[in-house]
Design a protein around this nucleic acid. Structure first.
Lengths: 250, 250
DNA sequence: CGCTGCCTTGATCTTCTTCAAAACGTGTGG
DNA sequence: CCACACGTTTTGAAGAAGATCAAGGCAGCG
């Protein structure tokens, strides 16, 4: 049963729908915005978080849901996506453990702008947005860290906007793979392996293209020795040359 | 000389390259992130800001400049754009008085990710990023307001990403006009007038299209009675129908 | 062993860009 | 006040990139 698995991607640990208390504390301590906080304060904050596990493909919340919680990925991977009327989805980001998502705004509509969906077996911590705002008010360092992270995300979004409006599909797909490689890549004998089940459709939705174009382009990259790939996985064999393509050289 | 101006767009007030002290205080008081702060604290903060005027078309800073300042538009309009290697620029946003831009991050590269350029005669206040971070640390309410604003911008950027990757040029241009109308629109006898000199090239760079496509699409909108426009100006005559186009109905 | 999803590949067609040139508006200098 | 010159806008025709439509192939799973 395991013997003829062909994908090099390792399945998520079988830890079920609960995160152990150890893991929770470990995750929270490692969170960029709690870095530097006294341990006992973190323990106090920890108590304000709820936890919940999600099966692969399960939706954590839908765009438009009228709730305000802030989530943190404890384990697993989470897709952040936005729907279009035509049913065509756009994959905005893939979040790794330690990253946050959800709604932490005080103003505006009380709805999530995006849909969040577990890509693998996932455990997520969540907290009431208002409670988190209280924490930010009490610990300015936390607020500053949040600003930094949002700043970084805004920068990434702007970069993506540039990509989408001024680059070819080939360039955007190369760029998408590199981004995923940076975030989720693990060295393996096939190259820098993107550690997660990643379909052609996912790649297409991230790069703003159709499944067919994504497939054609990946085939072409594979033929050129830039990547290796199979059903639901991709590994980067030659990131440098990929980068050249993404930047418009090749 | 003035008699045969054809544009309905009013020129920026002739106030020259300096903002009066009154204006400075007024701007700072009205800033969303200083709302609710005691007046005397604002006066103290005011002292930490520098001011500088810019001529139309003048660049405030270039992407890659190794400085860290946070800017606030006091008067005028500022274009935020990102260059591509192919010389094709992407217009990320147009900022109105009261909006901020620049670099306020503590981490990452000490460079601006985007270029900022005065679109009209502009006065901008600026502050050292580190100083502003101190202010955020001292006044948690300020930090929370900044988080809210960045949250809103991130949402807008995600929306734009969706637009770029899943909509036609016509839809994107309609959407661009509506966005501009919301932000800069003023009721006039020609419709909701976008109060600033706006070339076809600007529209194209915001919508991710070429000048020619923008021109063709605007002509078509004009013929259909959706907008009125001329050299360097656009007014929305029928926002509702434009919205229908942007959303994919028409 | 066959079913169900993913992935691939080909042919066609639409959309948008590119290239080219002309028309127009605005401000300038005569 | 007029005419010229420049930058903006418009329009046309050809071309390319990618979407769409349509089959067929392959892997994993029951």
């Amino acid at each position: 049963m395991v013997s003829h698995r062909r994908t090099p991607v390792e399945p998520e640990s079988i830890t079920p729908h609960l995160c152990s208390l150890d893991l929770r504390l470990h995750i929270l301590k490692g969170l960029p915005f709690f870095a530097g906080l006294p341990e006992e304060d973190i323990a106090g904050i920890n108590a304000r978080f709820h936890e919940r596990g999600y099966a692969p493909g399960e939706t954590i919340f839908y765009a438009g849901d009228p709730v305000k919680r802030l989530y943190v990925v404890a384990s697993g991977k989470v897709k952040l996506l936005r729907h279009t009327l035509s049913g065509q989805d756009v994959l905005l980001d893939i979040l790794a453990p330690g990253e946050f998502f959800g709604n932490l705004s005080a103003l505006g509509d009380d709805v999530y702008p995006d849909t969040a969906q577990a890509q693998t077996l996932t455990c997520a911590l969540s907290i009431e947005a208002d409670v988190f705002r209280q924490i930010m008010a009490a610990y300015p360092a936390v607020a500053l860290a949040v600003v930094d992270i949002m700043n970084e995300r805004l920068r990434a979004a702007h970069e993506m906007m540039r990509q989408l409006s001024a680059h070819t599909a080939e360039q955007r797909i190369a760029h998408t793979l590199l981004k995923l490689g940076e975030k989720l890549g693990q060295p393996a004998d096939v190259g820098l392996l993107i550690q997660m089940p990643l379909s052609r459709e996912d790649v297409a939705a991230m790069a703003g293209a159709t499944v067919e174009t994504a497939s054609r382009t990946l085939s072409q990259f594979k033929k050129a020795g830039l990547i290796r790939s199979g059903r639901q996985w991709v590994a980067l064999a030659d990131p440098d040359r990929l980068r050249a393509i993404a930047e418009g050289d090749a």
